[in-house]
């Protein structure tokens, strides 16, 4: 958003300091990521003895990547996770935005009771076994839907979306109503476009949650052709993990590398989503445009 500001001396000084400060903060956040990247191609012994300071790869090698990428399953994992994240994300966002729109109507009878009951689920849940039995009763076990449906709506995401909707100018809706728009038109034609920033945020939240989720898969999926990327990667990790009998193997030494490599392999695709969604964060100007 173009911000109109005074160009006083103080303002310029502030800008300079701000840039310097944020650069520092950025480097601080960059370091662990850089470290992971460097460590994934380094000799793990030297990494561990570096005291946490790793500027260049030490004892360069790509064994860990070869180990991770040789698995046939990993590509299946990628395909499945992509599917779960995209389909699940879209479905979740859709249902969440609809619910948030409804629950942000100030005059809706029963709104407070519904909100209260929804909050209750944040704190009290049936636990693993009863939830499993319900999911099983719906026939979702060993289907792609097991990765999507049981976590369809996140209450946290729902709440922040409601909060966002509440902050939108009510007059727009009034005006639309006077023009004869019904609730569906208001939701899909007026509110949704105004809500692009929050929709991008919860899309990101949902997709990242599905992307990183591996417990759901462990519980509901047995068929290996449905495994998500994280499930495949954990299998590779566990294989490289401590095993008293296998302790004699050279492989052991690369267990650390593999850990770093799996993070790089699993993270890069999802990292690319954010810059793409970011541009919707600056669409706030729309409000002014619609008002006219």
């Amino acid at each position: 958003m173009e911000q109109i500001t005074n160009n006083g001396k103080g303002s310029r000084l502030f800008n300079a300091l701000n840039i310097a400060f944020l650069t520092g903060v950025m480097l601080l956040a960059l370091y662990p990521c850089y470290y992971v990247l460097m460590a994934s191609v380094s000799d793990p012994v030297q990494v561990s003895n570096s005291g946490g300071w790793l500027w260049f790869p030490k004892g360069f090698g790509m064994y860990s990547y070869m180990d991770v990428l040789k698995s046939r399953l990993i590509w299946i994992g990628y395909r499945n996770t992509l599917f779960y994240a995209v389909c699940g994300g879209v479905l979740s966002v859709f249902v969440t935005v609809m619910a948030a729109f409804g629950l942000s109507r100030k005059t809706l009878p029963g709104k407070n009771i519904l909100l209260f009951l929804i909050m209750v689920t944040m704190y009290f849940s049936g636990g693993l076994i009863p939830t499993y039995l319900v999911v099983k009763a719906f026939g979702l076990i060993d289907t792609p839907f097991a990765m999507i449906i049981p976590g369809l709506v996140s209450t946290y995401n729902l709440i922040i979306t409601i909060t966002y909707f509440r902050g939108l100018p009510y007059e727009l809706e009034e005006a639309a109503k006077i023009d004869g728009a019904n609730d569906y038109t208001i939701l899909f034609r007026i509110m949704m476009p105004l809500a692009t920033p929050i929709i991008s945020v919860i899309s990101l939240y949902y997709m990242v949650a599905i992307w990183n989720n591996y417990f759901t898969g462990l519980i509901y999926l047995n068929n290996r052709s449905l495994y998500s990327l994280q499930m495949v990667l954990r299998e590779i990790l566990i294989q490289n993990d401590t095993n008293a009998i296998a302790a004699n193997s050279d492989m052991q030494v690369y267990a650390e590398n593999v850990k770093y490599a799996t993070i790089v392999v699993s993270t890069i695709p999802i990292l690319c989503v954010y810059p793409f969604l970011q541009k919707y964060f600056t669409k706030g100007v729309m409000i002014g445009a619609i008002k006219q």
């Binding site: 693993l128 076994i129 499993y132 039995l133 099983k136 591996y214 417990f215 462990l218 519980i219 047995n222 499930m231 954990r234 299998e235 566990i238």
Partner: peptide
């Protein structure tokens, strides 16, 4: 069962 969730898988099998 997936070896990362052996205990859960066992319990769920018994429960179901």
């Amino acid at each position: 069962p997936n070896s990362n969730a052996l205990e859960e898988k066992f319990n769920l099998m018994v429960a179901s």
